[in-house]
Simulated assay, not measured.
Amino acid sequence: MYAGPTSTKFGQVAIAEPLRFDLLEFHDDTPLKEVEHAIPIPVLDQEDLDKQGIDVTKLVPGAAAADALGSCTCNTGTAHIAERWAAAGKDITGLKLTGGTGAIAMSGTDGPADEEFAILLYHLVTDQTGVPSQEWPPTDCGSNGLYVCQELIAQGFAASYKSAPNVTAALALLQLGTVMQGGPWFNSWMKPDSNGFVDGDGSYEAMRASVKSGVAGGHETLQRGITQLALTSSGSVDLGNTVIKVRNSWSTQFGLNGDYLLHASTLNYLLRYYDFKAVVLA
Rank of each mutant, 00 (worst) to 15 (best):
L97G: 01
Y273A: 09
A170T: 00
T178I: 00
F26T: 14
G214R: 05
D199T: 02
E116W: 00
G77R: 01
T252A: 15
I41M: 06
D91K: 10
S143Q: 00
L59R: 10
T30W: 05
G11V: 06
D275L: 14
T6G: 00
A3K: 12
S203C: 09
A164L: 06
V167A: 07
A86F: 07
P42Y: 10
T129N: 04
I92G: 05
L23R: 15
L261T: 02
D238H: 08
I92M: 06
E220M: 11
G111H: 01
K90M: 13
P192L: 05
V179N: 10
P42Q: 04
K33T: 13
V280K: 08
P112K: 10
D28M: 09
D28K: 12
L231C: 07
A113S: 15
M106K: 10
N166C: 06
V131K: 13
L171G: 07
L229N: 12
S249Q: 10
L176G: 12
G182F: 01
E17H: 02
A158C: 12
A105Q: 14
Q150P: 01
S163W: 00
G156Q: 03
I244M: 10
G182E: 13
T221K: 11
F197M: 12
W136T: 01
R20Y: 01
E25C: 14
D55G: 08
L152M: 04
G77Q: 04
P165Y: 02
S71V: 01
W250V: 11
Q46V: 03
Q128T: 11
N257V: 01
E220I: 08
F157P: 06
A113R: 15
D199G: 07
V56W: 06
S163V: 15
I104P: 04
L171P: 10
G130L: 06
A206S: 15
H80E: 09
A282E: 11
N195T: 07
Y204V: 08
A282D: 15
S233N: 14
T73P: 07
V215I: 14
W189K: 02
H123M: 02
C149W: 08
Q134C: 09
H27N: 14
